[in-house]
Nucleic acid binder design. Structure first.
Lengths: 154, 154, 154, 154
DNA sequence: AATGAATGAGACTTCATTCAT
DNA sequence: CATGAATGAAGTCTCATTCAT
């Protein structure tokens, strides 16, 4: 999966032959197909692993007892830091996922929805208790900042 | 080129057979190859057309005699509007271009650099004459806002 | 298609690589796939051609104004003769078609049904007008004789 | 071997992966290869088992002290009955064996020859002592009737 | 200029078979 | 004896590109 991430980041999914992934990983294609039924399956598992990691870290922060303002700061920082920490992973992760198979597309969307939903809840909590301004649509705020962050990372 | 944009947006460059573009355009592959030497050439011309349009509109605004603040507003608005006006084009345009061929990559980078350079100049002008705050790195400001805008558009 | 018939007869469908058919036909695999979308498609067309020929000849006899007894004789003779005339074709044709794809299977069954139905009608006509014995189930008679003939041919 | 027969009957030899046979039999491929050196070997043993059974039953009848006419009747009946009793086995058994490996091919031919030889001997005995008509080529009679029977069975 | 059949390299995937454990 | 991961050759099919007409 490491090899796959690196190559998908560098050349894109379609432009990366399975053979090359296998070589980079030091296995034969046969062996690779022993563990991943399909090239797409490999992609799916890569995404799942990345998303699970990101979600877990976010939830740990959200469930902590930091003040709201610091929670949000920590969450955004985590995105920036993890992006920088593994650029290949980030490149794959923030790829226009509508180009990928419908299966991956739907999976990413679902995860993303959950992620945004949780962050939105935090902001709304802040708006209610006066920590944050309440005169801006929450969704817009979320999208705008994440968008900016992602773009910076890449 | 219209057909190519639509298909590249929907399925990605690698996943779009030349044959399909030709069919969608109502020509034969032979005819298509008469005008574009290569599939990649077609992509290059698509990018050039899109970039030329965007740059021209930006420069018209920058060279106008609007007040600085309104110039920047108009430029950003133009990005948002043109994104919305032709989503397929936008999807192709804001694709991670490092995945495309080195040739396209370099072309896009060069154009992008020029575009940012011009916008940065406007901001710096504003910072000098007191229109804008001067305590933020200009580059960061540019990237952050364009990043946010792009992300919103898609 | 000639090349395909020969090879399918000699080695069976599964055991015949597309490459080999193309070579035998003196074309490239690419060209072959230009005309037949799939290896299975090629098989389907081979069957259709064979069945159309056989049915046409049978119907010509059935619609002629020969006496009934001679019609049946001619039909059976035609099966024997065409079997001998092109053994490769016969080998493919009388293969256990349930092993082939469901699509071919169903097509062959449908044709076969039509063929048997026509022959059965002739026999029944003969039974009604006293030309043939009427104390044997028609279906059994048809199956028995065709079975014998096919087996002899192969 | 049971599993193999079922699958060979249903999908054909070439279209049946060893893995699937092993799974159906509830063993691992490794274990299967412990008992059969080759996929083809498995096929050979399947055929041998089927042929041995059929030949033994035939010889028991031929060596009995039934009258000739009843012997032949019993032999044909046995073919019909055993065909019906295990259709999967019959499907494999009456497959166009020239498609199988030369080794199996030759084995089947040899057995078949022996079988036919014995039956032919019975018929000739009957022709000499006047039980059967002697104005038909024996070989043709044998082939014709077995062919019909096989075809009916399948 | 247009056509579209042909090319052939290369992609994904399967599978009989082996072998260290 | 059994396991099942690993091997790698081979198979089907796709597709960018060419070229005679």
């Amino acid at each position: 999966m490491r090899a796959a991430i690196t190559l998908f980041a560098r050349k894109g999914f379609d432009a990366t032959p399975v053979r090359e992934i296998a070589d980079a990983a030091g296995v034969t294609t046969g062996a690779l197909y022993h563990y991943f039924a399909t090239k797409e399956d490999l992609l799916v598992e890569v995404y799942q692993q990345m998303q699970a990691g990101q979600r877990l870290r976010m939830e740990a922060i959200a469930d902590s007892d930091l003040p709201l303002r610091e929670k949000l700061h920590a969450i955004i920082s985590d995105v920036v830091e993890s992006t920088i920490a593994d650029l290949d992973e980030a490149v794959v992760f923030f790829q226009p996922f509508h180009l990928l198979s419908p299966r991956v597309h739907e999976m990413v969307r679902a995860e993303r929805r959950g992620y945004h939903y949780r962050v939105k809840a935090l902001i709304e909590e802040g708006q209610r208790d006066g920590t944050f301004r309440a005169d801006v649509p929450t969704t817009l705020a979320v999208s705008y900042h994440f968008g900016a962050v992602h773009q910076l990372g890449l």
